Amino acid sequence: MKAMKLNDLCFFYHSGAKSRRIVGVVEVVREWYEDDESGGGCVDVKAVGEMRNGIDLQEMKRESGLKDFVLCRQPRLSVVPVGEDLWVKICEMGGGYEGDCGGENEV
């Protein structure tokens, strides 16, 4: 999370056991800061748009272009980097989102 920068686009990923899927895109509106209440750190994000079709983890694992994507190997991670090629591929798989695909991205 410390590497996330203001205005970065990120996928919003449900990591629950029954619903592991990318469901939308958010934008970083406040970079990493220490959270006094939790003793940890966080970033603040705002919703950009929902994916037109949520992308299930199993669907991502079957896609040959995503086999090296760290989320497919460790699906419980909360934040992983997403390169430009992966970002475009995932947006295509989900039919896009309510906004424009592109930019420097995280999950």
Rank of each mutant, 00 (worst) to 15 (best):
Met1His: 06
Met1Arg: 01
Lys2Gln: 13
Lys2Arg: 12
Ala3Pro: 09
Lys5Leu: 06
Leu6Lys: 03
Leu6Gln: 06
Asn7Leu: 10
Asn7Arg: 10
Asn7Glu: 15
Asp8Ser: 05
Asp8Trp: 04
Asp8His: 11
Asp8Arg: 00
Leu9Thr: 07
Cys10Asn: 08
Cys10Trp: 02
Cys10Thr: 08
Cys10Leu: 09
Cys10Ile: 03
Cys10Ser: 14
Phe11Ser: 01
Phe11Trp: 03
Phe12Cys: 12
Tyr13Leu: 02
His14Cys: 14
His14Gly: 11
His14Gln: 14
Gly16Arg: 00
Ser19Gln: 04
Arg20Glu: 04
Arg21Tyr: 11
Arg21Val: 12
Arg21Ile: 11
Ile22Lys: 07
Val23Cys: 14
Val23Gln: 11
Val23Ser: 14
Arg30Val: 06
Trp32Gly: 08
Trp32Lys: 09
Tyr33Leu: 05
Tyr33Met: 10
Tyr33Asp: 02
Tyr33Val: 09
Glu34Trp: 09
Asp35Arg: 00
Asp36Ile: 13
Asp36Trp: 02
Asp36Glu: 13
Asp36Phe: 04
Gly39Val: 07
Gly40Cys: 01
Cys42Ile: 07
Val43Trp: 02
Val43Thr: 05
Val43His: 00
Asp44Pro: 00
Val45Gln: 00
Val45Ile: 15
Lys46Asp: 08
Lys46Val: 15
Lys46Pro: 00
Ala47Tyr: 12
Val48Leu: 04
Val48Gln: 00
Glu50Met: 14
Glu50Val: 13
Glu50Cys: 13
Arg52Ile: 11
Arg52Lys: 13
Asn53Ser: 10
Gly54Gln: 12
Ile55Thr: 02
Ile55Asn: 01
Asp56Ser: 01
Asp56Glu: 03
Asp56Lys: 00
Leu57Asp: 03
Leu57Cys: 04
Leu57Gly: 03
Leu57Arg: 01
Gln58Ala: 14
Gln58Tyr: 00
Gln58Gly: 09
Glu59Thr: 05
Met60Ala: 02
Met60Ile: 07
Met60Tyr: 01
Lys61Asn: 09
Arg62Tyr: 08
Arg62Val: 06
Arg62Ile: 03
Glu63Phe: 00
Glu63Asn: 08
Ser64Tyr: 10
Ser64Phe: 11
Leu66Ala: 13
Lys67Ala: 14
Lys67Thr: 15
Asp68Ile: 08
Asp68Ala: 15
Phe69Ala: 13
Phe69Trp: 12
Val70Cys: 03
Val70Leu: 06
Cys72Pro: 08
Cys72Glu: 05
Cys72Met: 06
Arg73Phe: 05
Arg73Trp: 08
Arg76Lys: 00
Arg76Met: 00
Leu77His: 02
Leu77Lys: 01
Leu77Asn: 08
Val79Lys: 00
Val79Phe: 01
Val80Gln: 02
Val80Asp: 00
Asp85Pro: 07
Leu86Asn: 15
Trp87Pro: 10
Trp87Leu: 15
Trp87Gly: 14
Lys89Trp: 01
Lys89Leu: 10
Ile90Asp: 10
Ile90Tyr: 10
Ile90Lys: 11
Ile90Phe: 13
Cys91Trp: 04
Cys91Gly: 08
Glu92Val: 05
Glu92Ile: 05
Glu92Leu: 02
Met93Ile: 11
Gly94Tyr: 06
Gly95Tyr: 01
Gly95Met: 03
Gly95Trp: 05
Gly96His: 04
Tyr97Leu: 07
Glu98Gln: 13
Gly99Tyr: 14
Asp100His: 08
Asp100Trp: 09
Gly102Lys: 01
Gly103Ser: 02
Glu104Thr: 05
Glu104Cys: 03
Asn105Tyr: 09
Glu106Thr: 14
Glu106Met: 15
Glu106Tyr: 14
Val107Asp: 11
